[in-house]
């Protein structure tokens, strides 16, 4: 029974991917899509989901959508603009450094979200992480500070707050 609850979100995700990849919504696509997503959902449920209650929470899903919108339209744009300014400035004023930042989320998905969000924005790359101590090590092309707390506020706090809301 628990496995069935766990399979709901993977099955829904798999159905969406199936229909988008197929590119049509005939009855045949929907029927085979439902059958395939049930099988794929059950197969991958233990791999993907730890706590099914969390996976079915609409509040968490809403935070994920809010995060996606904010990330792609605000954070990405901001850091792209910063990097354009850096690379177009004639004296190429760089201050590269690898900075340690403590993050609060301890969930695997949360850490993944924070690391990928930081890496995907231009100018910052997560090079290593330590789950037990909750530290990530970020290569920063224009390090405004090297103190862990301040750089946490500067780079990862936004993502960390959302990761806590979505996954923890």
């Amino acid at each position: 029974m628990k496995r069935l609850y766990k399979s709901i979100v993977p099955a829904l995700l798999s159905f969406v991917i199936y229909v988008v990849y197929t590119g049509s919504l005939r009855l045949y696509d929907i029927v085979t899509g439902v059958l395939v997503s049930v099988v794929v959902g059950v197969l991958t449920s233990n791999l993907l989901i730890e706590d099914w209650r969390k996976s079915l929470s609409l509040r968490r899903f809403a935070s994920l959508v809010r995060f996606a919108l904010r990330y792609f339209f605000i954070d990405e744009v901001k850091s792209h603009l910063l990097l354009i300014r850096l690379s177009l400035s004639p004296k190429l004023d760089l201050r590269p450094a690898i900075v340690k930042m403590p993050i609060k989320t301890r969930n695997d998905y949360g850490i993944t979200l924070v690391s990928l969000a930081i890496t995907n924005t231009p100018g910052t790359v997560v090079v290593d992480l330590n789950k037990e101590k909750g530290n990530i090590y970020v290569h920063w092309i224009y390090a405004k500070t090297t103190s862990p707390e301040e750089s946490y506020k500067e780079v990862s706090e936004v993502f960390d707050k959302y990761a806590l809301k979505i996954f923890d």
Binding site: S14, V40, L47
Partner: peptide
């Protein structure tokens, strides 16, 4: 990604 691969393969 595993989930996505399986859905795409089945389609």
């Amino acid at each position: 990604v595993t989930l996505a691969i399986l859905a795409v393969a089945a389609s």
